[in-house]
Simulated scan of single mutants.
Amino acid sequence: MSFERLFFSVFGFFLRLGLLVVGLMVMVFVLALSLFMLVAWGLYALIARLLGRPVQPLAFTILRQAQAQFFRRANAQSAPSGAPAGAEVIDVNSREVDSATTDRLGR
């Protein structure tokens, strides 16, 4: 067995071992974070019950309308000054473009 082959096999083993450790650390972090969120929400629910308030479920909402408005505002700001906001091209004069003898890299 040559030194190069031995080196790459040992290097590959430690690389796999390192990736396994990193993956396990990420998994433990995600589990700990989810457990923390569950405990925090349970504490919130317990306090709400003790105070006689209704318990709100833990929910993440996605406001699609707000996202759409963000992109519409960005598009309106980038529109040319002469064109109204949201203007679209509806009429185009097409023409044929002659193909060049060179390829795309200019050779």
Rank of each mutant, 00 (worst) to 15 (best):
A87L: 08
F13Y: 12
F29C: 00
V26E: 05
G12H: 08
E88H: 15
L35K: 11
E88D: 01
T101C: 02
L51W: 00
S94R: 15
F8K: 12
L58C: 00
L105P: 10
G18L: 00
G106D: 08
N93Q: 14
N75M: 05
V97G: 01
L19S: 01
D103T: 09
I62T: 06
L38A: 14
S9H: 12
F8C: 01
A59F: 02
G42P: 00
R49I: 08
I47D: 00
F3R: 08
V30G: 05
P57N: 11
F70Q: 09
G12N: 03
L15P: 04
L43H: 06
S9E: 14
S99I: 10
M27I: 10
Q67W: 01
A32E: 07
A79T: 08
S2V: 03
S9Q: 14
G18E: 04
L46W: 13
M27G: 15
L105C: 08
S94G: 13
L20N: 07
G106M: 05
F71N: 00
A68F: 02
P80I: 07
P80L: 08
L46Q: 12
R64M: 02
L24R: 03
L20T: 10
V10D: 05
L50H: 06
D98L: 14
F11I: 12
L38T: 10
L6S: 01
L105N: 13
G18I: 02
R104A: 15
T102Q: 15
L20S: 02
Q69R: 13
P80M: 06
V89A: 14
R16D: 03
Q69V: 02
F36T: 09
S9L: 09
L35Q: 14
A32G: 07
R53G: 06
L38R: 15
M1P: 07
L50I: 00
R95E: 12
F60N: 10
I62Q: 14
I62M: 13
R16C: 04
A79W: 01
G23H: 06
S78M: 05
F36W: 12
S9W: 07
R107S: 03
M27V: 14
A45F: 05
A66I: 10
P57K: 10
V22T: 01
L33H: 07
P84K: 05
A83Y: 02
P80E: 03
M1W: 03
L51M: 12
G52C: 03
V21T: 05
L46C: 03
